[in-house]
Nucleic acid binder design. Structure first.
Lengths: 219, 219
DNA sequence: CAAATTTGTTAGAATGATCTAACTTATTAC
DNA sequence: GTAATAAGTTAGATCATTCTAACAAATTTG
């Protein structure tokens, strides 16, 4: 069984994996706020327990066993976030820290019960998919708002960044998942978008914001 | 801030404290399933951080700081047990293991919200008092059923032991907190008691059981 | 109270997770 | 295609938590 620390490495590897499933030691170390030698030695030890594949000077890859373990940790994290929001009345900007701790609890029945109470949700409060209890995660193909065109109507479905600051910004603009946005125009100079939604007839979103908003194009 | 391990030592000290607030190294070690040298060295290190008072060859005592910290961990444990039973549908025999892990979560808002949703409970599902958010715990003076006399009517209010096996035994006899028992007789040979309650007109409880049942005498 | 037993301590070692300093390999930029 | 930079590794140390073996103090018991 993976230790608390090992679980954090597995989750980081899972989240950092590129399209080839590879993660550099450097990225891993930065993501976990540890030194490169620390990440290096932990990767060697994860290899011994068959969680990762690794060769000197090459990027790290999760084994199927490692992938499943990591996905199940992510599952616990996202189920917890959903539970905190839907059943305990927390805001989507408040749940990350707590979920970061609860994801390490070893108690299948606890998370199964959450899942049940929530009606087996497939996404978390930030629109990220929840892996199933076998560690399989469905792929969504959402579009960054930044790549959409004036005239399009879209629905906000997920975020690429869920930092407290960003979530609080979205709260201040009353932007929630599910909101339908009409793209009015794009400013050529800074790529900011002018959109309208609900009672907001004109709201400007910077490129920094619009590239973090994932949408489904409605028309 | 106390580490996960330190928190477990503080909690053990809190639970093992006798009327003078003292705990022997031996009891501490047994309770945590570690060797005596381990307990000894941890006690020395807890002393350095002002969690405990300690002198060579003397029993250990929690400082006020240590007592409060321990009580707040116990508070988190018992609130969690209550939440699992009342809000998530778990049985009282299923909640100890999970609460043992969740008690280490650092997230005041999470536990405050539980407390609120539960209506600020003062006892956990096994009748044990929940310390308040300042770490103060009210003292109840319950009587072990084993010391009661035939003819008395009592109400089951708490347990001195909450092992899964004992709780499952109580489930099998439909004995829940709040149940009113009438003591019919006592067997002189083994001190077992014959009681009646609800639809059970005659149930024999061994001394081992009756001394673990805490009651309030009604008449 | 002296012997036996229990309890507590010291010393020394192991493991997991981390660091810095120094060095090596790989990549990027002229 | 070298020189500079970035990325990765090794070596060696530290800290927390644990152990066993050996010894010492305190308590219990005949």
């Amino acid at each position: 069984m993976a230790s608390f620390t090992e679980e954090n490495y597995l989750k980081a590897l899972y989240n950092l994996s590129n399209s080839h499933g590879e993660v550099s030691i450097s990225d891993l170390a930065h993501s976990l706020a540890v030194s490169m030698p620390t990440a290096n030695s932990m990767v060697k030890s994860l290899q011994k327990s068959d969680w990762v594949l690794y060769e000197k000077y090459k990027p790290v890859t999760l084994t199927p066993k490692g992938q499943k373990e990591a996905a199940l940790i992510v599952r616990k994290h996202r189920l917890t976030e959903m539970f905190l929001v839907k059943k305990m009345g927390f805001g989507w900007e408040e749940v990350h820290e707590v979920a970061e701790q609860i994801e390490h609890i070893h108690a299948p029945k606890f998370f199964d019960r959450m899942d049940e109470m929530l009606g087996h949700p497939t996404i978390d409060p930030h629109g990220s998919p929840i892996p199933d209890n076998q560690g399989r995660m469905q792929e969504f193909s959402y579009t960054p708002l930044s790549t959409c065109k004036p005239g399009q109507t879209v629905q906000l479905t997920a975020l690429t960044n869920s930092s407290t600051e960003f979530l609080e910004f979205l709260n201040s603009r009353k932007l929630a998942l599910g909101t339908q946005l009409k793209i009015l125009s794009r400013e050529a100079y800074d790529q900011s978008l002018v959109v309208s939604y609900e009672s907001h007839s004109q709201e400007t979103l910077s490129e920094k914001v619009s590239e973090r908003l994932l949408v489904r194009v409605l028309e």
